[in-house]
């Protein structure tokens, strides 16, 4: 399983909100390995779809110069299962942006139906964090995240 859980950023209002599209793969191996015969997207991966949408929205406010990592899941709730073939829209709204990070309010929709929602807290890493981790510039430096950066 690769680690990209949105297909495209379809709308982005800088520093405010973003919408991403995600079609659940029809036959991804992880869906069947999760529970054979009853394929649905693990809710943790739906949280990741919301985190990636909000993470790109927050990263763009720093021109992708600072690393953004998920620091806390304040709350996540799921009302519906997401199944193979579902066309999902992920919405993220930035709230409370500070120097050290931000909070984002996110939703996942299938048509008019809300599949789930989450409030996520992100850290914007500092040079000191980078020294502690021994890594910097790792989130948006390339790979698939690099390809999803809306310029």
């Amino acid at each position: 399983m690769r680690w990209i859980h949105i297909d495209d950023i379809v709308e982005l209002r800088e520093g405010e909100r973003a919408r991403a599209a995600r079609t659940v793969p029809a036959n991804a191996e992880y869906l069947d390995r999760h529970f054979p015969g009853i394929p649905f997207v693990p809710q943790t991966l739906l949280i990741e779809s919301m985190a990636q949408t909000a993470g790109i929205l927050l990263g763009k406010t720093t021109r992708f110069e600072r690393d953004v990592i998920l620091a806390k899941i304040d709350r996540a709730e799921f009302a519906e299962l997401a199944r193979p073939g579902d066309a999902l829209v992920i919405e993220a709204v930035l709230e409370d942006i500070r120097e050290e990070g931000a909070r984002a309010s996110c939703r996942i929709l299938r048509g008019d139906v809300e599949v789930g929602r989450a409030t996520l807290v992100f850290a914007l890493l500092t040079d000191r964090d980078a020294d502690r981790l021994g890594a910097r510039g790792f989130v948006f430096s390339g790979g698939l995240f690099g390809g999803l950066r809306p310029d």
């Binding site: 690769r2 990209i4 693990p42 943790t44 990741e48 890594a135 790792f138 790979g143 698939l144």
Partner: peptide, 21 residues
């Protein structure tokens, strides 16, 4: 682990949501 190629290319770590999983 295949996902480490993306998370992250220069800094492979377990995604937080996998810890929750």
């Amino acid at each position: 682990e295949e996902y480490l190629a993306d998370h992250f290319p220069s800094f492979p770590i377990m995604p937080g949501v996998i810890m929750l999983e």
